[in-house]
């Protein structure tokens, strides 16, 4: 276990959709420099957990949430569900990437620059630098630097997903939430993203939802298994070293 203090702490989190309880009493901590993977059946509440961390679940009017999520930045602690920090600031600090590459039908440049300009309020040359920095982070810069003003929908699926990642990184998040980021990509692009995650985790605390056990073994420092809205098992680095043990645990808890 990591001895550092956690960046994000979820305590006692329960979520209901209308009358149905989707998550109950979830406890979860994310540490800097660590990549945590959430696995579980489809419908077990993984995505809901992800979305309730940055309060994106509040978009659905029938959703009700109880419990606490705390975000610890260098300067202060933000209680996500009861704080005077504006919601938009919280969501910016907790970056999120979705399963389907959600690029806007604008230019590649504008896909990254527009959110930077709006949420961070940057102007002029700072934006250009920021865009280049973000694109370099996801090793996309060399591929697109000559066609920054082409429409982003001309990129391949893997490139689009990396563009989405760059868009999130450009907003200076503290935590990254990724909802099955490679599910709609081919093998090669998926491997590229996995390698990228390995680099990024040194700088951000990352939480990934994954469907693929192989991928989980490759990238995870810690694995949390969710079943029917409950956290049923947590596995640390030690257990993950032994794939046979890992698959045995999965057999029992799935």
């Amino acid at each position: 276990m990591n001895s550092l203090s956690s960046v994000l702490e979820v305590t006692n989190l329960s979520v209901w959709f209308s009358e149905r309880q989707v998550l109950s009493d979830i406890h979860l901590s994310l540490f800097p420099g660590e990549l945590t993977v959430l696995i579980g059946h489809s419908g077990s509440g993984k995505s809901t957990l992800l979305q309730s961390i940055n309060r994106l679940n509040e978009i659905f009017p029938v959703c009700r949430t109880q419990g606490e999520v705390q975000l610890c930045t260098e300067r202060k602690k933000i209680r996500v569900y009861q704080s005077d920090v504006p919601l938009s600031e919280i969501r910016r600090r907790i970056g999120m990437v979705f399963q389907t590459p959600a690029v806007l039908p604008f230019s590649i440049f504008r896909n990254v620059a527009m959110p930077v300009r709006i949420t961070l309020g940057y102007r002029g040359n700072v934006i250009n630098e920021r865009v280049e920095w973000a694109l370099r982070q996801v090793s996309l810069w060399d591929e697109v630097k000559d066609r920054l003003h082409k429409n982003a929908s001309t990129l391949s699926g893997g490139q689009q997903q990396r563009l989405c990642l760059a868009r999130t990184l450009a907003l200076e998040p503290d935590v990254l939430l990724l909802d099955e980021p490679t599910a709609s990509l081919d093998f090669k692009s998926a491997r590229k993203i996995e390698a990228l995650l390995g680099e990024l985790k040194t700088r951000y605390a990352i939480l990934v939802v994954s469907h693929s056990l192989g991928q989980t073994l490759r990238v995870a420092d810690r694995v949390c298994v969710i079943r029917d809205g409950r956290m049923v098992r947590e596995m640390g680095k030690q257990e993950l070293r032994n794939p046979a043990e890992f698959y045995r645990v999965i057999e029992t808890y799935f």
Binding site: L56, S88, R91, R93, G95, A102, M114, P115
Partner: peptide, 21 residues
């Protein structure tokens, strides 16, 4: 829907999501 979610996940307010997205 997945395009619509970009707004809030990038930290846009509701009006910013409407206006810029």
């Amino acid at each position: 829907p997945h395009i619509r979610l970009i707004g809030p996940s990038c930290g846009f307010t509701q009006w910013q999501t409407i206006c810029y997205l």
